[in-house]
Design a protein around this nucleic acid. Structure first.
Lengths: 224, 224
DNA sequence: TGTTGACTGACTGGATCCAATCCCGCTCGA
DNA sequence: TCGAGCGGGATTGGATCCAGTCAGTCAACA
């Protein structure tokens, strides 16, 4: 059957949520911008009701925030909040890695290596952002606790915009450091060494945080 | 105006969410139990639509989980998942405390002391559970990052049932250790000592986790 | 007697219509 | 000229009705 049909059989709210999620993560919908229910419904050919449900789902994923009688929009994070989100990641992601490591299959590890190879092949910015996200989240694929992984996903979602803005202005000349960190992390994963893995991972996140803090122009003005 | 009216002016979905939240946290709705939209709508005098929205809100808070075409229910956590949730708390709550400490007002600290005094006055189990929750979450009241506090709240929500079951069968004879830990934590808060605060707090959570692990009868059978 | 098939009942998912709320701009008055 | 009060338009929130889907049950057939 055609993929058009496959898309259609999925629940409408799921489909709308996927579409909005893509739009938000790609930056098409900017932080602070209101998301009009009717406009989305018309564009995706559905009623407003599944749009409302989709917005609730996205809110649960940390992608939007809702205000009564005013609507939903992508949250605008200030500098300090972004720093705290990164600190949360520094503390949670090593735990997820430790939980994941014993259950990662050789196939999953091989896939991780492929993803890292594609990252190093130096593609465009959107590809880098998607691959970097896939690399890290995939390394938690063995984690038996869904709640931990989804919590981490929320943190990634919340700062996606800042990652893109930061990579845009920092340029590709500093990607070698990401690659070095990823390689060390990947090696620890191959060896299933949780201690080394936690070390490299938290260092990777922490370095990103401190570097991000030196670029205040990435963040929204506190005018909100 | 009467509080009945005050309740009514709030959005219906908010009111329904608050009612369900109370029912779940109090144990009235047991884990694994399906929540029928129509039944809730009839009981609270509303249509099914705000009930659906309320269930989405609760899902965002980690109180329910949703399955397409089947409905919502309170998640049943296995032993390992509860342990991981506690480890997440061990890593996140010290961060929240450190973030909160500089901004806690003397009034808030005084309130914390009152809550601890009420905990030590040895009231019933429901009161203890509510006060213990209030004690910890209140200590994060100064945290300027809402996202961090709400993430922690989700973790508390997820394991509320197990806390109650554990306290029920362990009895009140071991509450002195909670009080000792709370007092040390409270003293660190009074001194605004983040290092000591993190130490006592993570130790408090960790001890609870290990003690909980010795009571497998608290957890749902893996029959789900 | 065991198994498979369709039927039925209940429940969730979605669409349309109506009510309540909020924001913005306008007007009137001091 | 500035501020308070007041509509009008737009947008969200809620109710009712209909369609789709799942599970459990009963009956018929091998």
């Amino acid at each position: 059957m055609s993929e058009l049909h496959d898309v259609a059989v999925g629940a409408a709210s799921e489909r709308i949520a996927a579409s909005l999620r893509e739009a938000i993560l790609s930056g098409e919908i900017a932080p602070g911008q209101w998301i009009r229910q009717e406009e989305v419904a018309a564009r995706l050919g559905a009623s407003r009701l599944p749009v409302r449900e989709a917005l609730r789902m996205l809110e649960a994923e940390g992608l939007t925030e809702h205000e009564a009688n005013k609507g939903s929009r992508v949250p605008m994070l200030g500098m300090h909040e972004v720093a705290v989100v990164y600190q949360m990641r520094e503390r949670l992601e090593p735990l997820a890695l430790t939980e994941s490591l014993p259950h990662l299959t050789p196939e999953q590890i091989a896939h991780l290596e492929q993803v890292q190879a594609r990252i190093e092949s130096d593609e465009g910015l959107p590809e880098f952002l998607a691959l970097d996200r896939e690399f890290h989240l995939m390394s938690y694929a063995g984690c038996p606790t869904e709640r931990l992984v989804s919590t981490i996903s929320r943190l990634w979602n919340a700062t996606q915009h800042h990652r893109r803005a930061f990579m845009l202005l920092s340029g590709p000349e500093r990607r070698w450091i990401v690659n070095s960190e990823h390689r060390l992390l990947l090696d620890a994963i191959r060896r299933r060494d949780a201690v080394d893995g936690e070390r490299y991972l938290s260092g990777h996140i922490r370095r990103t945080r401190t570097e991000l803090a030196q670029h205040p122009e990435v963040f929204a003005a506190s005018s909100s």
